[in-house]
Nucleic acid binder design. Structure first.
Length: 259
DNA sequence: ATGGTCGGGTGCCGA
């Protein structure tokens, strides 16, 4: 079972790139972030035509997450628990069943800039809520995968120019410590496992020829529970997608699980 | 060199 995550930066602006990558990479499940679409405006037919079911948790204009799956999907839950007043669409869960089941989450963690400030406070509070939800999912002892745009650079080797990110909400010590708390729950970073060492990036800014200079960062992550991690056989980053026409600023990240 | 680039909620904001 191949599961991928991709921050598409607007699903309607990516209606050339996403179907093309599905046709080429054939993931069983694709977790999407920043669909920037209300549920009713999501272009589901482009994916249903390719055999993918669609579950969205969107909002008009920004944020928004979705799960595309060509395997059966059950028990969709929309929204991150813990704050009834949070109207931002950044979290969707579902159970995907091949020969065995996996509980998957598509998450879009808040950017948090400028830091310090209310946006950074929201980021850290959101991460604490997500950690509590992750702990509850791990307590089920089922295979669980949390994938998405985590908006955290875990370590200096995950940025081409780490000094340029000092003071940024994606790289502040408190952001990195909060990310490590997920790992310390017992989750495994799939790409860190199969692509060890520095220099593996998933995002390159649109400005200043960042991709051409390989001035990237690794912020899109797939974190797996022990029951899911035991089934991993490979993982990687589809960096070539960034060289395509009108690309997202993020590229797909994928993991292969034994069925 | 005080800009540069995207997508969308627009004629600006978030990233």
């Amino acid at each position: 079972m191949r599961i991928a995550t991709w921050n598409v930066n607007g699903i309607r602006a990516r209606l050339h790139a996403v179907p093309a990558w599905l046709d080429q990479a054939r993931p069983d499940v694709l977790l999407l972030q920043e669909i920037k679409s209300a549920d009713a405006a999501f272009p589901a037919a482009a994916f249903e035509d390719r055999g993918y079911g669609v579950a969205t948790h969107g909002q008009k204009g920004f944020n928004g997450v979705a799960i595309l799956s060509r395997l059966p999907v059950e028990d969709v839950v929309r929204g991150l628990p813990g704050d009834a007043g949070d109207g931002q669409a950044r979290w969707i869960e579902a159970t995907v069943t091949g020969r065995r089941a996996v509980r998957v989450v598509s998450l879009y963690l808040p950017n948090g800039n400028p830091a310090p400030g209310p946006k950074y406070d929201y980021k850290l509070a959101w991460m604490a809520r997500a950690e509590a939800r992750a702990a509850a999912l791990l307590a089920t002892e089922e295979a669980v995968l949390l994938g998405g745009d985590w908006n955290v650079i875990p370590a200096p080797g995950d940025a081409a120019r780490p000094a340029a990110w000092e003071g940024d909400a994606l790289f502040l010590p408190a952001s990195r410590a909060a990310f490590r708390r997920f790992l310390n729950l017992g989750l495994t970073d799939a790409v860190a496992t199969f692509c060890p060492g520095p220099g593996h990036y998933t995002f390159w800014d649109y400005q200043a020829l960042a991709f051409e200079r390989n001035d990237g960062i690794r912020i899109d992550h797939l974190l797996l529970s022990p029951q899911a991690a035991d089934r991993m056989s490979d993982a990687g980053i589809a960096a070539e997608v960034r060289a395509g026409e009108r690309p997202s600023d993020h590229v797909p990240v994928w993991v292969e699980l034994d069925d």
